[in-house]
């Protein structure tokens, strides 16, 4: 259960997560991030049991509105909602009126009118989830907006690291690959720096955003130098269309320069943890031998933590409307 009990401020009980939505890691205090991780622990235990069920969201409707294709994140949110007893509806965008030219705002108003109790949104445009959140009455969870943020991914990554390493503060985390187009990288930079890790970004200069140092990270274009002594090596997915000469010359050149192999990994700390948000391009950003190395790779554990973290977020964000004491 939670290690962060309700705090008392001026004699009033103040709950530890005073946010209506989860749009991003930006705006969260370190103790709020830690609170969500603490909350997720109980769901890790539940999910490992046989009867994976809790009824606290019974009667509540969760709409998964995914404007961009997703398999694993959508599935993860769907399972998280169902394990907590919510009625889960997935909005298939291909069949939706968005294709008929309906604006995002109109879609938001429509979802709101259907009295959803939680809306999970993924959209290909940075800022789109905030736009919807401003127009609806229920909590909105960002499942990825453009290159902006993907907060539940950062939370599940932090939980994975914390469980495997016992801490986050003081660790060296190397985030490697296409940082420029990655919302996973942005959310992870925000959460890991907030939790006290030393974060590096490593990749070809064409895939590192300008002024990224201003987010409190160190920038490396030399893969080996970036890996040197790292406690966690977080690989990012490189989109196929960016390998054809636009940002890097070819997949094989990328693999030669920035692909994670066991030889490369030897530069990192001896017990360095390897992570990847998936889906992987095996043989491009990561060699199969590394991805499948159970000693080093936490990739399947990340997926497992994803469900737990999302259960925690759904639970915490709906406490107010469920009338949980003190919320």
């Amino acid at each position: 259960m939670s290690n962060s009990p309700t705090r008392s401020v001026d004699g009033r009980e103040v709950h530890p997560f005073p946010h209506r939505h989860l749009i991003g890691i930006a705006g969260l205090q370190p103790h709020e991030i830690a609170f969500l991780l603490d909350e997720a622990e109980q769901w890790v235990q539940l999910n490992r049991g046989t009867a994976k069920h809790d009824d606290r969201l019974a009667g509540l409707t969760l709409i998964n509105a995914f404007f961009e294709n997703s398999t694993r994140t959508l599935l993860s949110f769907e399972i998280a909602g169902k394990r907590l007893g919510a009625d889960v509806v997935n909005m298939a965008v291909a069949a939706s009126s968005v294709k008929k030219g309906e604006t995002l705002i109109d879609t938001a108003v429509t979802l709101n009118a259907m009295r959803a109790d939680m809306i999970v949104i993924r959209h290909e445009a940075s800022g789109a989830v905030q736009l919807i959140a401003d127009k609806v009455d229920c909590p909105v969870l960002n499942a990825g907006d453009g290159r902006h943020e993907h907060p539940t991914q950062a939370l599940l990554d932090a939980l994975t690291i914390r469980r495997r390493k016992g801490r986050i503060a003081g660790l060296i985390v190397a985030i490697c690959g296409d940082v420029l187009h990655s919302r996973v990288a942005r959310s992870n930079i925000l959460s890991l720096t907030a939790l006290g890790a030393e974060v590096r970004v490593v990749g070809p200069p064409t895939l590192l955003p300008p002024a990224i140092e201003r987010m409190g990270v160190t920038r490396f274009t030399d893969f080996d130098a970036g890996l040197d002594g790292a406690d966690v090596v977080m690989m990012l997915r490189l989109q196929r269309e960016r390998m054809a000469g636009g940002f890097v010359p070819s997949p094989r050149e990328y693999h030669a320069l920035y692909g994670l192999t066991h030889e490369r990994l030897a530069r990192a700390a001896p017990d360095a943890l390897v992570m990847h948000p998936g889906p992987m391009n095996r043989g491009v950003e990561i060699a199969s031998a590394v991805a499948d190395d159970l000693e080093r790779s936490a990739i399947t554990e990340q997926v497992e933590m994803g469900v737990a973290v999302r259960m925690a977020c759904l639970d915490v964000l709906t406490r107010g409307r469920r009338g949980v004491a003190g919320w």
Partner: peptide, 11 residues
């Protein structure tokens, strides 16, 4: 290009 664009994830 700059910190704001990088933080917001805008091209």
């Amino acid at each position: 290009d700059g910190e704001t664009a990088t933080r917001l994830g805008l091209a």
